[in-house]
Nucleic acid binder design. Sequence first.
DNA 1: CCAACCATGTAAGCTGTTACATGATTGA
DNA 2: TCAATCATGTAACAGCTTACATGGTTGG
Lengths: 191, 191
Amino acid sequence: MVAAKAATQLGYTLLGLVLAKPQSGYALRKVFETTPLGNYSSSPGSIYPALKALEKAGLVERRSAAGGGGKQLFAPTSAGEAQFGEWLARPVDEEAMARHLDGVLLRFAFLQFDPDPGVSRDFLISFEAAAWARARALEAFLDGEAGRALSLHARLAVGHGLENIRSSARWAADARRQLGDKAEEGNDDEG
Amino acid sequence: MVAAKAATQLGYTLLGLVLAKPQSGYALRKVFETTPLGNYSSSPGSIYPALKALEKAGLVERRSAAGGGGKQLFAPTSAGEAQFGEWLARPVDEEAMARHLDGVLLRFAFLQFDPDPGVSRDFLISFEAAAWARARALEAFLDGEAGRALSLHARLAVGHGLENIRSSARWAADARRQLGDKAEEGNDDEG
DNA sequence: CCAACCATGTAAGCTGTTACATGATTGA
DNA sequence: TCAATCATGTAACAGCTTACATGGTTGG
């Protein structure tokens, strides 16, 4: 049990991508170039060092590709799969909601690889709860002593955050509905 | 004209705070502790080095406080004020909208210090335009080849970003209205 | 043969963080 | 005098970026 070192956010992203399909560093760069994934740079200086770190941590391994040449494919190890699953299952808390929303959404996107639809459901439930909690905190701030002392500009800026959080909460409810609709085609879970 | 080096985001934040009122590093830390400003750590290891960098760049200066002891106040220099004003007046582009929204909102909050209400208005106009542009870009992505190939999870994740951007755009329109209402009490600008 | 793309990497640096360290002042 | 708070700072590192560097392959 080699208690693998925690991967970085970018590391988990790469782990998720090679878990979906083993691929080369170059192919991974193309993903970052062509999709709004994370918001990470697709430059080689970002991707290759991150892959190397994952390899060193024993979370991915590289295989020589069939095509020959120096080309190589990255694939997750079993430790990598396990740690990725752990990452995915983390509940969403208010702190993550406030400061690492991008990472939280990234995690949600990768929940497609969890065979248990209950994990996605739990994720969205905790997401929505954390969002409303954060919204209440911002409302309390605006209504409190410090908040009332703010200028209109500052209040509006905080209000922007509040509106975005509310939008996120509504999104979670809607996403849960959409995933539920999809699930109904197959089986049924306790509500 | 000593072309002062550009401050960092945290640097501009501190610059804005000392512009509002010259204060000590400790007092600045308290602001970060008690308000959702930026999302910066209030730890001394964040604030003091940043202040030192601003001082080195000639954007703030320190004065010994009246109270005696080692206590000192930071205040903006004229170069600091000038550069802060420049920072404030930057138009909002889609790139900033997508990747540095926090910083953009921070700038808006500090626009309270610009005596010309037209700057705030222009800011919100470009903000709204950039938001809708970003929304259209995400819509185009979802409707495009790459987007349609995504799993429901991934589509929902992108959809979250889209909803947030729309929320931001609506906020800008509302904020403009609120600032306009306030302005009507005073004078009138060409519409 | 040359341009375009495939493919991989290193070096240096920026921005900010946590953890550590220190000392003065104030009030119970 | 002892704890809490005021007040300032450094050291080490994390995580990512840009810029640089290199070479293979493929097609016109």
